[in-house]
């Protein structure tokens, strides 16, 4: 049983959050049963809805994966937010101004966005590795700085005066990611993110660097004692995590938009933290966690359209899940009893 402790705790947290959501719905909806029904089955109602779930899950998987790496290395960095944003901008610039054939245009744009993400991410990483500067605060500052810079570029250089909203010029068609499933907007980014997840999983559990990352995150002084250069590990993790967050921003931009139009941080970075929590810092579980989150978001949107309960109910569910999953003491008694049993069994 103990082996499944984390899984049980996660499921129970989710269940409690959903039950609370249902109770809220019961209080405010005129047709609670119908509303809950829409919330639960809405995302499966049509292929467009199912497509929606997957589309929303793609950026969540990218930032979730990025945060998984950081959290796993014991680094409380919330910078995926700003990197996602600025890399989207970099990809947009290339999509607008460069001309290439459709084979390499998106690849170049995505790589450029990812590289920018990696390089910017390395700065707080180096500050942490070398001088032990707090990554949480520096990464939050970077989010605000990058948001300001991005907005500046949008307003002063990319803005299409002919458009009615605050958006950039149109991307060249060659830069857009192709749709892979007809009837939906699911784009090639899905394949890319799944490959990234597999690669990260392999990296984390089957390579020397991944090993060093896990040991450093689990117990930094043990890692040092074993001869691992933890400073280097911290910088490397930041590079990779920044790369993934940057790739996420680029892919989202080229897959879902025709113009750059983020006037504020899109929020995927903090969502990444939630995904990492749900996935228990496990790369493969990111898929399920992101799909789950996307599912309940689409469900909530459907509910908002078809019933009298607003979609923002979702943020209450998310908050409860976060509070419960990361609560050490939640179900601790049960865990301790299981530990004792296990110990007795082994003698």
């Amino acid at each position: 049983m103990l082996k499944y402790f984390d899984a049980i705790r996660t499921l129970l947290s989710v269940a409690i959050a959903l039950v609370i959501a249902f109770i809220i719905i019961a209080f405010i909806s005129d047709d609670p049963i119908g509303t809950i029904g829409i919330f639960i089955t809405g995302p499966l109602a049509s292929s467009a809805q199912i497509g929606n779930v997957v589309e929303i899950a793609i950026p969540l998987m990218f930032t979730g994966l990025s945060v998984v790496l950081l959290f796993r290395a014991g680094l409380f960095n919330l910078g995926a937010e700003g990197l996602f944003y600025i890399s989207g901008l970099v990809a947009a610039v290339i999509a607008i101004y460069w001309s290439m054939n459709a084979m390499i245009h998106p690849a170049v744009a995505i790589l450029a966005g990812s590289a920018v993400g990696a390089l910017l991410s390395a700065i707080p990483g180096i500050m942490k590795a070398k001088w032990n500067a707090d990554v949480l605060v520096t990464s939050l500052m970077f989010n605000s700085i990058l948001a300001g810079i991005g907005l500046y570029f949008l307003n002063y250089h990319l803005r299409d005066a002919a458009a009615f909203a605050n958006v950039s010029y149109k991307f060249q068609e060659t830069a857009r990611l192709e749709t892979i499933i007809p009837g939906t907007r699911i784009h090639t980014g899905l394949i890319l993110v799944l490959l990234c997840i597999l690669a990260t999983h392999y990296f984390m559990y089957h390579t020397r660097w991944g090993y060093e990352l896990r040991m450093t995150g689990s117990n930094r002084s043990f890692a040092e004692f074993s001869g691992i250069k933890t400073g280097r590990v911290i910088v490397t993790v930041h590079l990779i995590a920044g790369f993934l967050a940057g790739m996420g921003g680029s892919v989202e931009m080229l897959g879902m938009y025709a113009r750059f139009q983020w006037t504020d941080l899109p929020g995927y970075g903090l969502d990444g933290a939630l995904i990492a929590l749900l996935a228990k810092n496990n790369p493969l579980s990111v898929i399920g966690a992101a799909l789950f989150l996307a599912y309940i978001r689409v469900g909530a949107d459907q509910m908002a359209i078809l019933s009298d309960v607003p979609a923002e109910l979702i943020s209450i569910i998310q908050a409860i899940i976060i509070l419960l999953i990361s609560a050490e003491q939640f179900l601790k008694m049960w865990k301790n009893r299981q530990l004792l049993k296990e110990a007795e069994k082994l003698g």
């Binding site: 090993y211 896990r214 040991m215 689990s218 117990n219 002084s221 043990f222 890692a223 004692f225 074993s226």
Partner: peptide, 21 residues
Amino acid sequence: MSQGAAKEESISDNIISTRYR
């Protein structure tokens, strides 16, 4: 606890810590 082992990692991970290189 602080130097000898990474508690959350597996026995085999803990065993190779000084030789995986």
